[in-house]
Design a protein around this nucleic acid. Structure first.
Lengths: 200, 200
DNA sequence: TTCAAAGTTGAGGGTGCCGTCAAGTTATGA
DNA sequence: TCATAACTTGACGGCACCCTCAACTTTGAA
């Protein structure tokens, strides 16, 4: 693979060393993002990649472009996996609830995804698209649970987003402190969203 | 008042110009903190006071000392007022709930108080003491409501603190956007904390 | 082998904040 | 009025990050 001629039309093929650097930077960036969130200094990424900061800018142009290239697929995979798993639940409420729990779990365990879900980098356009897509799917969970009578009817998609934003902020502030206790608090939140009729 | 001899023993009295500057800085700092939160650049406070940054450091030494001097009384007043008003409610649950609502309202309307309540400046010691004091009083609300059976028994004081931390983060992120909608969301939260038995 | 085009490098300039200190100014009491 | 301790000033160095660009190195086609 990657033999001569494999380059996409339009993009004027990179020299071999540049291509190698691109890979090294992507790998380093993925590691750094996963460990420390999307705010890692680009200097640090360059260092990890064994490359100068200038090269990083040559290859990617902007921070947003780099995060887009590195994180979009990962984000799409993680988020659509959560959606798929939630879909596997037997009733509208448990689909909604497990969707919320799965996203919160992602936020608790993956700093980079937390930043993405909380929309802290609105200029990374592919990432934004991935999030939009997920929110579209989430709308289904919300509507189904409301139609079913188990989710309070005044709860909006924006409210759902804000649940994630504030959970994300908490995760960022708490970091390792109280790492395990988020699940109980998400439980509180869900209890506040379920209608009385839907409780046993 | 403030006539010669009024200085506290120990503190070696300031020259009149220095005393005036101290007042100008306090006033400017209060304004700036209230408008933009405790993170305002000290440069900005000095400018508003019509004084150089050096003077600000001469008079107060550190940012923490300044925030302590300027905000401790304001914070104590606001927070104890919230406690007092909550105490005026007729039953344990409504005391707890109105306490939470009042604190969240303060967070929504006063950036400086929001920073204080969220403990974003742990080195301002008088402020920390004011918060500790309030949490002590809050413990009463929590315990009473739990004894009464209206607040879920697995809810802890730390959970309460985290409610304020995440509400605070949301307020900081949202700023003016959706300024009025926080009350509905606090309602969701409270619904999640009330026991089923306590609902009508 | 040669050499132009492609790519790399890192010092350097920009921003925004912090906190300091030598030099200059002013209040005060003798 | 004058000496001096008290006070003010703001330029400066430091830090952490951003992004650029002139000088240098490497690739790879001819």
């Amino acid at each position: 693979m990657n033999h001569p001629g494999a380059g996409k039309a339009g993009t004027p093929r990179l020299r071999r060393d540049a291509q190698l650097n691109t890979e090294k930077i992507k790998t380093a960036a993925l590691d750094a993002f996963q460990e420390r969130g999307l705010d890692v200094p680009l200097e640090e990424i360059a260092q990890r990649a064994g490359v100068s900061i200038g090269t990083l800018y040559n290859r990617f142009g902007t921070r947003e472009a780099l995060t887009d290239v590195v994180m979009a697929d990962v984000a799409a995979e993680r988020l659509s996996d959560a959606v798929a798993r939630a879909r596997g639940c037997p009733d509208p409420w448990s689909r909604f609830a497990s969707y919320v729990e799965l996203i919160c779990e992602i936020q608790a365990t993956e700093p980079a995804l937390n930043d993405i879900v909380s929309r802290r980098h609105p200029d990374a356009s592919r990432l934004a698209a991935v999030c939009d897509e997920t929110m579209t799917q989430a709308r289904q969970f919300v509507e189904d649970a409301q139609r079913d009578g188990s989710l309070r009817p005044d709860f909006t998609l924006e409210d759902l987003f804000l649940v994630f934003v504030s959970n994300g902020a908490l995760m960022r502030i708490m970091a390792e402190i109280g790492a395990g206790t988020w699940r109980r608090r998400v439980g509180f939140t869900l209890d506040g969203l379920r209608t009385e009729a839907a409780r046993r």
